[in-house]
Amino acid sequence: MRIDVKRTIRVLAVLLLGVGAFFLYLDRAFPKVRCEGAHLSVPEKYADCVSCHAKSTARATQDWKESKHGAMLVKCVVCHGEPDGKGSISFSANPDPATICARCHDPAMRRMAAKFGGSADCSICHPRHQNPLHSDAYQHKTPSGKTSF
């Protein structure tokens, strides 16, 4: 098949420009509709992470609800901070155990390190969001129990 190089280049250039313009537009448009916008609460309404994240990250939310953190009301912001960056805790989707987990669990982490040698990643044995009320906390657990969309 004959390849018309000039034409191909022109089309690709248009494509690239078009795409570039498009995601530039996306970047700026509809702030309230994008997920960042959803974190700006309407003052009158009860607003926290769970109401949206029950849909967007359903499994994590369900796991958290059934976990010890959920029962003890250790809410999302305690570990993750505020997504608009204006909170008192720096925002992080993957909090660092050495700073975040240690804030409450420092004594237990030290005991673990002394007995078994520490792990930089607590979630190897204590899966994120999953510390079920009825679990044996010292049993190795693999992530399980996927919930649906």
Binding site: S56, P143, S148, F149
Partner: peptide
Amino acid sequence: LHRVHGMDGVLT
């Protein structure tokens, strides 16, 4: 897409 969502290690 459901299948992808259900894969091990996928947050969302």
